[in-house]
Design a protein around this nucleic acid. Sequence first.
DNA 1: TCTAAATGTCAAATATATATTACAATATGT
DNA 2: ACATATTGTAATATATATTTGACATTTAGA
Lengths: 64, 64
Amino acid sequence: MKNKKMKIARIENDLSQEQLAEKVGVTRQTILMIEAGNYNPSLNLCIAICKALNKTLNDLFWEE
Amino acid sequence: MKNKKMKIARIENDLSQEQLAEKVGVTRQTILMIEAGNYNPSLNLCIAICKALNKTLNDLFWEE
DNA sequence: TCTAAATGTCAAATATATATTACAATATGT
DNA sequence: ACATATTGTAATATATATTTGACATTTAGA
């Protein structure tokens, strides 16, 4: 399933996928696929994304 | 750094590394290395571990 | 002390996350 | 309508998570 929370948080921070990718140290495709879903990122990457977007793991990656 | 929170949660749930591994669908070594640290598990695995231990991502994998 | 369960360490093989590159599609402003 | 930024799609290559198996060490109970 798509990760809408992450996309929203990214837009809240006024970042394009490419800008977020650069900030986090990965490629744009990696960010793209995480937002698109059907992807299984590593914990370290999730944490880096959270910090770049001023969120926590639960905010962006925890369901229910 | 070691993941002490996960080890404690596992013991609280009266599970050996092997039992947790089986419950989560991975090998004992994977659990062992996550607890030992210097490891970068996938998000899906982290979520599965959290659910098996009745915790959230922030509980077990978020620092600060 | 003895035994078994649980934990730890190591090397090699396999599966999969991530990078790379290029191009298509959609949005946004002029 | 045009130009540009942004997002999406796809194929292949590389890095690394996870498996497998075998053995060493520690722990706890009888």
